[in-house]
Design a protein around this nucleic acid. Sequence first.
RNA 1: GGGCGGGUAGCUCAGGUGGCUAGAGCGACAGCCUUACAAGCUGUAGGUCACAGGUUCAAGUCCUGUCCCGCCUACCA
Length: 893
Amino acid sequence: MENLPKTYTPQEIEGKWYQFWQKNNYFHAEAISEKPSYAIVIPPPNITGSLHVGHALDNTLQDCLIRWRRMQGYNTLWMPGTDHAGIVTELIMERKLAEEGTSRTAIGREKFIERMWQWKAESAGYIVSQLQQIGCSCDWERERFTLDEGLSEAVRTAFVKFYEQGLIYRDTYMANWCPECNTVISNLEVEPIEIDGNFYHIRYPVKDSEVVLEIATTRPETMLGDTAVAVHPDDERYQHLIGKKAHLPLCDREIPIIADAYVDREFGTGALKVTPAHDTNDYEIGLRHNLEQCIVFTRDGYINENAPERYVGLPRSGCRQRVVEDLQNTDSLVKIVPHRHAVGHHDRCGAVVEPTISLQWFMDVRPLARRAIEATQKGEVKFIPARETARFYHWMENIEPWPIARQRWWGHRIPIWYCNACDTITAAMETPQQCECGASDFRQEEDVLDTWFSSGLWPFSTMGWPAETPELTTFYPTSVLVSGWDILFFWVARMIMLGLGCMDEVPFRTVYLHGLVADEKGQKMSKSKGNSIDPLETIATYGADAFRFALANASTPLPYVALPESQIEAGRRFANKIWNAARFIFMNLEKHPMPVEMDTVEINRGTLEIEWIQSRLNYTIETTTDALENFRFHEAAQTLYAFLWHEFCDWYLEFTKQRIAQETPEALWVAANVLEQTMRLIHPIMPFLSEEIWQQLRYGGSSSESALDKNSVTVAPWPEPMGENPTAEATMATLMEVIESIRSIRGELNVPLGASVEIHIQSPDAEIRDRLETYLAQYLPAFTRVASVTIAETLQKPPASAESVIGNLAIYIPLANVIDLDAERVRLSKRYQQAVKDVTAAQKTLDNPNFVQRAPERVVSQKRAQLERLLVEQEKLARSLEILTQSAEGNDD
RNA sequence: GGGCGGGUAGCUCAGGUGGCUAGAGCGACAGCCUUACAAGCUGUAGGUCACAGGUUCAAGUCCUGUCCCGCCUACCA
């Protein structure tokens, strides 16, 4: 067939069909519809980013769900869009600027933001086109961006609302500070990394005493900000010192010795230096004891003038070095002990985070967290896998105020205005006209919001909130949220809280958290580790469908999913297999055109292979649907793979060849019909290939312009199961066993393929004989070359023949000229030994009276039947072996 | 320190509520260009299901303990 090349070439198919879908608007969701709704909002990728393998997995799974539900007749919305991704994006721009020999601060806020928008404009289409290349069926007309006009309004609305509720407030508080990025960050953004550091033991002399307190610290430079030494109130060693003063070396200051139960007597020396301005715990101690907060770092990580002059202006690391040297020189350093401990690093830039007191905007998320917990407990949100629910609760129950401001530029500027006359604070949608003091001169807050604040509003901000839009009515709450578990707290939890806060309702009913893609060593794939595969390269090499199949197939419920190259290769082979099965059908359809429409192919109830394949198809429909229903993507992929390859291709199409040779092409038409339905089933996973073949099947291969105004598998109905046929399946199973036995004999005894063989089958079962007579002669030639088939109730084993036993059925193949009797003896005795082993096991089970008494009748009778069959096999094999051995001995004479 | 997940064939993994002879893909070996597919076909080999107990008629599956591996989480300076 000229228009179907022998090898599947995805590159020639994929682009064409994506355009076709777009042109026909199949992905469009109606804001108002009679149909039931099904909605997913995309986890918005970074606007300037590119697709990595995690996106590929995430979006493939979403597309599977969306395409499947669309075919089921839902009014499906897949809401696409992108995120401005605050700090990450800024950092990349800063690197660019550095390459140009300038910097963020040099060009200033206005110019910087201008550059960001410019870059956004240049790169925005890139990520979208990548999503399209893997086939995502998003409603692109609705594409949104977190810094859009509409979404910005949503951000301001939410902020003002929470401010007015008192949930958002400004406070001087301890928060994690990144000196590289010059901004405060939240706990979630701090990544503790184990490093080899040191424990510095330092002497703090006690005033008016001979005693010297020894304290231990990993951060000696912070002593410049010490305002106390703490000991445990019950620590007998230090009881007498409580209330006295210690002399702080290098600073020439006196600091109080206080008692606080926080101190661990067992740890270090039992005496703790307290730096309330630069340590979270010390901060708490400081509050309890009214200690002075002495900030010694500048915002960009240098020592400020609160420290003695000789340290001012030093960077943190340099300062540590000088402090240690000075301690040594003044004989204040006792010792340095190597010590491994976790140090917080900023997850975006990698800098060591410095906890610092500053005036910040916070959101008290605790009330919303409580509501989120309650809503989840009531079942309004369900997590899959269920184990994630516990993680969610744990996080929510221990949640702390969220520092929502970032001292950055790229993002939503906080809608707070300060009166220049009286410093009154106003939260508003836009610049206020007049202050209550009468002045009308305002300055807006410089800080922007944490990028997760706007993405937390995503499920409703994208649908037009705060306006009351039909989209919100139709699609909110959305159906499912699909994401990696690594952003459960960052994003999913925030969406639930902010959704409850703004919409009074959870944003989605189900959260499906898939695993993260790992390499063959089990390491998470990421660009920074350099172990990532590039989705675009993969698509170029293997095709999007092969990639998608591999992703779906790899998507087990484990926290990490393995995606070795061989999986993708397997996907490609599968695509090629489907392609060639279709070619086979098309080629033969040309010779035997279908007399009726595809959907009305008559089911020939009398023909075994047709009943069988239809039964198997129905099983496949049921299993695939059930798998998708339960987010078991790997099971859907496996089921379709096994059906298409090992049942449809390996068996059914071989039957079909026979039928065509017999001039009864009904089987071929059924093959076309089954393939058509299977293409619908596999469409969610392999959209391009299934569309190509589906179009060819339905519209006779008019793959170009003429098909453009026609229907699409995208909107074809999801197949309905018509019930299974156990009788046909059982009969076919017997036939398959017979055929496999014959092939096995030929294979093991090296009977050349060209050689025709006589086949003698003996079975005492009249019904089995009848079925074999009806079908075997028809089917066999498709699988092996046969000269004749004899079926009888009793049969003399022909001389020099190979034998196979299936229960009470025996197959003999005379191989007078070919057979190697030794090989046959080895083969049979191997079978015999297996039979003995199986018989012993089954016998043992049945000999146990408790089994017969207590096991369900079904299991017992099954076991009995099994034993019976095995016994017959064993006996037959034993007899044949005996004969073989005798004849061998006879030959020896 | 707590918690979660995992340890099944050489490799990567399946094996919802315990019950056929523990499966697949890749790899290995042997034989095939059989008129859809060599990105294919046929056959074969390969597993004491981490270990030790226990519950049960029956355990890869449930319980307890142990050992490894990974992750999340935690204020030990």
